[in-house]
Amino acid sequence: MTAIRRNGAGYLFLSPWLIGFFCLTLGPALASLYLSFTRFDLLNAPEFIGAQNYVRMVTADPKFAASMKVTLIYVVFSVPLKLAFALAVAMVLNRGMRGLPVYRAIFYLPSLLGTSVAIAVLWRQLFAADGMVNGILAQFGIIGPSWISNPNYSIYTLVVLSVWQFGSPMIIFLAGLRQIPTDMYEAASLDGASPARQFWRITLPLLSPVIFFNLVIQVIEAFKAFTPAFVISGGSGGPINSTLFYTLYLYQEGFSYFRMGYASALAWVLVAIIAVFTAFSFLTTKYWVHYDD
């Protein structure tokens, strides 16, 4: 009797999530898996076409290839730079210094503002032909290119924007650094280990679970980035698809061209990429992530 009541109370409290999970997460996810095998324009009923969407993606869609390339460049450049910067600043901050809360807060501010349209607007103007960056370069007699409208550079302005938001992984690194027992460093110092050696032999191994966590989270977030590319390119992903983030392409296919079957297929490819990446990361942890017993 009490077991039934207990279960009842548990499920009652759980019910908002259960409803949401089935109606807004699992149901739609399965529906989009089905839609990914159809042609669907929202007005007519979905028409089953087998794996054609997926086949088209890899064989006959240069924009898919372009968006994948842009996104991979973004992930490969922005995530390591951001994490390296976050770790470096965290290590500088992590030594009982005055003003730590103030520095930490200022470094964190861009992470908080970063995804808003206003910051993308600002970025567009920082790197415009007559923007702030070229204004500074001009002081040194350098005539900078038009970063945003040059397809060779535009993606890197977005990489800079991402690195600018290093604050939130930095805070996680700070919390991780605080867990490392100080006597390990003291003992290493007594043994004459140089700071560089202490970094490689103590800090990095003991911080590796935190690095791993930050890496997985940041890679997933980088794959999902949307707003800055949308605002900087005016929704086009241009110039010449150079800022066509994967999610931006998905949005265009689904909501500009109403090819919703194809957009669903794109979404499932994104899930597959994230799943493979995450699984791969977990598999490699035994080689480089150090866990306490």
């Binding site: 997460t25 739609p28 996810a29 689904g254 979404a267 899930v271 995450t278």
Partner: peptide, 22 residues
């Protein structure tokens, strides 16, 4: 249920986007 809930943390919202819109 807890494991499922944690699993949805990783799921990109794009995968529910179009059916939710419908």
């Amino acid at each position: 249920w807890f494991a499922l809930m944690l699993g949805t943390l990783m799921l990109p919202y794009h995968v529910t986007l179009i059916p939710q819109y419908v």
